[in-house]
Design a protein around this nucleic acid. Structure first.
Lengths: 234, 234
DNA sequence: GCAAAAGTGTTCACATTACACCCATGT
DNA sequence: ACATGGGTGTAATGTGAACACTTTTGC
């Protein structure tokens, strides 16, 4: 029999950073806590890992519980484990990074958790080390969206190039050239023209594209660069 | 008082993937276990997180214990937490990714832990999910070395451009063009010519450079591309 | 002198940039 | 007709890839 030191058992939490995009602003799904600890303050959605569940199962459970969605894009972001990060008991938190299609979530479950979509730039201060977690998630979003086509996870299945451009402008906080952006995207060969047009527009209706899932999967590990070169200096 | 569910306390381990480079091959520092569980088999170096220590402190402790080195480059890689990953007790492992300058380690401490430097491509099968951890670490090394100047962490303070090229060739497993590589590196402005020459060489002695730490720190977040474009297709 | 490795130069192809211009739509 | 936003074209510039050639060193 093996001697596992009893003292090493530690509380393991999961916290989720959930990004959405409404066509104009990047948003975070945050909860105003109506439970202890830190009742009344804002925080990320989280919970404890159950002993019987794998990490990803736990994250999916928490995400589904809040948004009503399955098949959400998420991945591990980092582990936060400073000894004093939770003033109650020592708790190590595994932080997940999630992107959801904002129109598809279940707003009833969001309301019942006392959660709201908050524009990223106007977010309130959060409890514990959740502010740091969000900063890390923003950095990761910028890093990853430049190299991988994860931006698509924030849009509906069919989207227009101008919508995608607004998303990238929101992620990097800079304006992009319409014409160059369009060509850059189309040249990847990842977009399939659905033949439909965006009927919401009041002016010229933009073409609706969808992602070529097959190529997307094939090329997932290639390192693109959707980020403009002008950002590479910093 | 807050009700933290007692059932959520879980064993938290730390495992370290330690890369080194001997001028020719990428190597891993692995231990042949002379303790339970899985005595006699190969594994990564690890240990339990102590309740009083931060995650990074724990990782630094384990790395120092094995190599005798402080100030090792390391970062979180991922958390492995499948319910059945450790057949003994449920254990969640936080995996760290470390790069060390292979000539500077304390080979006495390594020997006393029954550890060895193993050429990456000849590594034995490891216990538990440690093989997966290594695969993830290799992917991370490739990903990161393409975009950040972390390769330098594997070389001595003073190095030649051909040495650096051999390192990148080992990381990506492909030959690189000498002339283009050299120009690409020098054009970053990150290398300072020390004025010394590599005296080991039996032919023309290459110039010894060192990293411009200031620029390195400044530009750490810019996304370079040390990887040849030819690899971007897959 | 010669082999082996280091260092420099040049050309070509292609991607990025910064523009101007045209098209579709609702009022 | 015109304002608004979508779509295409193009010339100048910069970068990467594929080369040839020269220099240094030990034997």
């Amino acid at each position: 029999m093996i001697n596992y030191p009893q003292s090493s058992r530690i509380f393991l939490a999961i916290d989720c950073i959930i990004f959405g995009f409404d066509g104009k602003d990047l948003k975070l799904l945050l909860i105003k806590r109506n439970f202890e600890p830190e009742r009344g303050k804002w925080s990320l959605m989280g919970g404890f890992l159950e002993p019987s569940e794998d990490l990803e199962v736990g994250a999916a459970r928490i995400l589904h519980d809040l948004t009503g969605l399955k098949n959400v894009y998420f991945e591990q972001l980092a582990v936060f484990g400073k000894t004093d990060r939770d003033p109650g008991e020592r708790t190590v938190s595994i932080v997940f990074f999630a992107l959801i299609k904002i129109d598809e979530h279940d707003s009833e479950s969001v309301r019942s958790h006392n959660a709201s979509w908050i524009v990223l730039d106007n977010r309130p201060s959060l409890i514990f080390d959740h502010n740091e977690m969000v900063l890390k998630a923003i950095e990761h979003l910028r890093y990853k969206a430049a190299l991988h086509p994860i931006g698509f996870e924030l849009l509906q299945e069919r989207f227009t190039i101008p919508q995608l451009q607004k998303l990238y402008e929101a992620i990097y906080g800079i304006p992009l050239d319409r014409r160059n952006f369009s060509r850059k995207l189309l040249s990847t060969g990842l977009l399939i023209d659905t033949g439909f047009k965006n009927s919401n527009s009041t002016t010229k209706k933009a073409a609706l594209y969808k992602l070529d899932i097959e190529k997307y999967t094939e090329q997932f590990h290639s390192f693109w660069n959707f980020m403009p070169d002008s950002m590479k200096q910093n």
